[in-house]
């Protein structure tokens, strides 16, 4: 790379410069696709075992209603569960903040649940709550609860230097401390929880649907794998991936904006 090319790059984005930058940003993803293709070619898979990408998209194109319906189903339980878990986790974190005893009682429980594979508990919940959409919703809510509880809880204590003393000198009451100081301080951590929980929300919904075989993309994936319909299984995967990556990108940009403003 020549000195002048890098110097000119940011100032006047030429077509070549723009392509170059895109390549730099996405070379990792391109590499994965190339590796995949290479693996398919090297292993000499036939079309039935490993469909070419276009076959997967053709299946989606041929059955838009089926895909859309299942996608919407999974998307709304994932979002709904995420919101429920967010509300519950944040609320309990605030309650723990306001009471030293509650904080002491709950903190280790939160730690325990964030160090175990909670996804493995989905079958227990499914059996307990019964097979159905509400159960998927509850499972996503429970999966989302712990990141919000743990991260909001620690964020409420990450106050700017000296601000706690400042509020004492202001004679601030407890609710003023909460709304003017602790909650705003916790926002960056809260967005981290949002990122972690949303990466898990669609996964949790799909795993629950997959195990119970009731509805949504997970059920589609389950049925297709049972029937060795690889195109359909990969179609469901593609839909889940699109939904999950979109959500992730939105959340990451929100997180970046908060970080920008807060530090």
């Amino acid at each position: 790379m020549s000195q002048s090319a890098t110097a000119n790059g940011p100032a006047r984005p030429s077509l070549v410069g723009r392509i170059g930058r895109t390549l730099l940003n996405f070379w990792g993803i391109a590499l994965i696709l190339v590796l995949w293709e290479a693996l398919v070619v090297l292993n000499d898979f036939n079309v039935i075992v490993m469909p070419r990408p276009w076959a997967v998209f053709a299946d989606i194109w041929a059955n838009p209603g089926l895909y859309l319906q299942n996608f919407m189903q999974t998307a709304w339980v994932a979002m709904g569960g995420l919101v429920l878990g967010m509300i519950a986790g944040t609320t309990i974190a605030v309650l723990a903040w306001s009471s030293r005893i509650l904080n002491g009682l709950l903190t280790p429980i939160g730690l325990i649940f964030s160090s175990i594979p909670v996804v493995a508990m989905i079958p227990v919940l499914a059996r307990m709550l019964g097979y159905g959409t509400e159960t998927v919703l509850a499972i996503v809510a429970i999966l989302s609860f712990f990141p919000f509880f743990v991260f909001t809880g620690s964020g409420l204590k990450l106050l700017p230097a000296g601000s706690a003393d400042l509020f004492s000198v202001f004679g601030a009451k407890k609710h003023q401390r909460l709304f003017h100081l602790a909650l705003p301080s916790a926002l960056p951590n809260w967005t981290v929880a949002l990122r972690l929980a949303s990466a898990n929300a669609i996964l949790g919904a799909m795993v629950a649907e997959f195990l119970m075989g009731t509805s949504g993309l997970g059920q589609m994936l389950h049925a297709a794998s049972q029937a060795f319909n690889t195109e359909r299984a990969l179609g469901a995967s593609v839909c889940a991936t699109i939904g999950s990556v979109t959500l992730f990108v939105l959340v990451v940009s929100l997180e970046a904006r908060v970080r920008e403003r807060w530090t």
Binding site: N25, F26, W27, G28, I29, L31, I32, A199, I202, L203, M206, V207, F210, G218, L221, A236, S237, V238, A240, T241, S244, V245, L247, F248, V249, V252
Partner: peptide, 14 residues
């Protein structure tokens, strides 16, 4: 960075 973030965002069950 980008490749890892996308890999992470894909639900592993998919």
């Amino acid at each position: 960075d980008r490749a890892t973030a996308v890999i992470h965002a894909i639900p592993s069950i998919a």
